[in-house]
Amino acid sequence: MTAPSKIVADPSQAAAAPLLEVENLHVDFISRAGRTPAVRDVSFGLAPGEVLCILGESGSGKSVTLRALMRLLPQGRSEIRGQVRFQGEDVLKMPRRALNMLRGARISMIFQEPMTALDPVFTIGDQIAETVIRHTGASREKAMARALELLELVRIPSAERRLKAYPHELSGGLRQRAMIAVSLSCYPQLLLADEPTTALDATVQIQILILLKQLQQDLGMGTIFVTHDLGVAAQIADKIAVMYAGRVVEYGSAEEVLLNPSHPYARGMLASTVSGQPRDRDIAAIPGSPPDMRNLPAGCAFAPRCAFATDLCHRSEPGLTQRGAFGHVSCHHVHRLDPPAPAGASVTTL
């Protein structure tokens, strides 16, 4: 294990108090067979109104990180260590009651699957109103009026009728909009979005993304956006954290990470995107497959797939090397590597 690293706050945001500070977050899953690490020594920070994208492939620990921030992992079968400070309060040490006051009111989550994340036997209106009633103590009528406002806010057509609809009566895109309405019901300061567009059709994905981006800006919400889609990250991120085998291997501003990635994994990932590549060339893929988390290699988890790996990489896990204003990279050879080849990804804004 490496020594805990200190994250330097982004100077541009220095004036604003941090919204969220995550330090040395570890998550282990506990089963009869033993302990499996899922998140290892993850640190990052978020200022109010900022968007952080956590990038990584399935099983890299990005969703688990997100759930750990809200302590949504199954109790008894998981252990969370480290520090998660939200507006100065330590979420991990908070009593249950205080945690429930926080969840859904100041921190909200959007889930990946709008099909299964809404209760099938309650109406959309009820599911929104229930959160409003829980956190504001409003009457049912007032909460329903609020639910209607929210459905209009997320631009669901004929919102009044949809209020009384059940989830199965809506299309995937509308359902995801309804889910966003649920998560916005108390205007949270921090929005956690777990691959909110992955389960949707491509055209609907873009609509939802535009909606989220706009709501995020209008409401000034700090947002953590988990995705495996580089394009999505390029569209909305201020900061990017790339995760591999439970660790953040590269963390920095969106420009730095997307245009000038340092970690061999981040480079490989960027090289494997379709956009900007010549048509007649095969897409470069990272050889091998991610490691089994129950059986991690002794050194750097990426070493077995890495073209730059040396003996050192197989022997010891790299610490964090400061990069840019606030970011870091976890690679032994970060100084030795050539400047990266043009990755092809360009940062565009909506």
Binding site: N100, G104, T116, A117, L118, D119, P120
Partner: peptide
Amino acid sequence: SQDYVQLLRAKGLGEGRVVLH
């Protein structure tokens, strides 16, 4: 074990409400 129970918890609802659902 369904996703929507996680959403209920993410909404900050108490156990009573979860039992109801």
